[in-house]
């Protein structure tokens, strides 16, 4: 490794390391204090109890919020897939007036600050008269489900569209030449090759929905989601229970992301 020892390169490595520390130290502190043996989060750290995880497991409103978040995320994934996959095919294969505008519009919720999408959807649901608590307790509320679906459709659409752009259409023609009809071609040729991209995007939507708070904040009805429940706790007194919950969320997100990156890598490796 040439020139790694010169001062300029050393300086670069040190500053990159410092930035890494800046990014991870706060997260490490949150995780360590979930094992803190006192209800007041203060220096010095007293490691060595799992009781906050015990408190968490028995906190019924936290569990209800967690369950609501999971339901919401699953529904968001289903909606985003149902709309996003056909949307990606439309973008890839058909031309229609306003296609460019359509693409830009879909992207807006990811580009704009969440609050704008949140108040826009709140105004919309209020205007059409759909109550924020409607659908409860079956779902956390139809508006928040539809809102997540609307905001996250673009993730599926763009990722699947990117995959379709790299897909060799000659394979479909070959399938047609072999007397497969369009459905058979779709199920046996097209879908298998875009499947990793679809699953990867679905996992990403799941994670994003689980953590979404800005749009959720405006659309939520009676039942809090997990981020909102945590948010509520933060506004009152804070105990290491919040840290325990945060650690669990961290672990779940980490797991999803690792799965997701595996999937993407497999796909890239196969090409």
């Amino acid at each position: 490794m040439p020139r790694r020892s010169d001062p300029l390169t050393a300086g670069l490595w040190i500053s990159a390391g410092a930035v890494f520390a800046f990014i991870y130290a706060p997260l490490a502190i949150v995780i360590l204090y979930s094992l803190h043996d006192s209800s007041i989060i203060a220096w010095p750290l007293k490691l060595g109890t799992l009781r906050w995880y015990g408190v968490l497991v028995h906190d019924t409103s936290m569990l209800a919020a967690g369950w609501a978040s999971v339901k919401l995320a699953v529904l968001a994934v289903i909606i985003a897939l149902a709309v996003g996959v056909p949307g990606a095919f439309v973008l890839d294969r058909y031309d229609f007036p306003g296609k460019g505008a359509f693409r830009r519009l879909v992207m807006l919720p990811l580009i704009l600050p969440g609050i704008i999408t949140g108040v826009a959807l709140l105004s919309f649901f209020s205007f059409v008269g759909l109550s924020l608590s409607s659908g409860f307790p079956l779902v956390p509320g139809w508006p928040v489900v539809l809102g997540h679906g609307a905001a996250l459709t673009s993730v599926i659409m763009t990722q699947v569209y990117a995959r379709l752009q790299r897909f060799d259409r000659a394979l479909e023609e070959a399938s047609g030449d072999l007397y497969a009809n369009e459905w058979q071609t779709f199920w046996r040729v097209t879908l298998p090759s875009i499947r990793p991209a679809v699953l990867g995007a679905a996992l990403l939507v799941f994670t994003l929905s689980l953590d979404e708070i800005a749009v959720t904040f405006f659309l939520i009805g009676r039942q809090n989601t997990l981020p909102l429940q945590l948010w509520g706790l933060l506004r009152r007194g804070i105990t290491p229970e919040v840290n325990a919950a945060a650690t669990v969320i961290f672990a779940v997100s980490l797991l999803t992301i690792v799965l997701w990156s595996r999937m993407i890598r497999d796909e890239k490796g196969r090409e």
């Binding site: 706060p26 997260l27 953590d211 708070i213 945060a246 961290f250 997100s253 999803t256």
Partner: peptide, 19 residues
């Protein structure tokens, strides 16, 4: 580097409160 992006916004904001 980018994993923290997908790990709870609330947790990251909260970390600074306890620090």
């Amino acid at each position: 580097v980018i994993i923290p992006l997908w790990v709870s916004y609330v947790v990251r904001a909260y970390a600074w409160k306890i620090i």
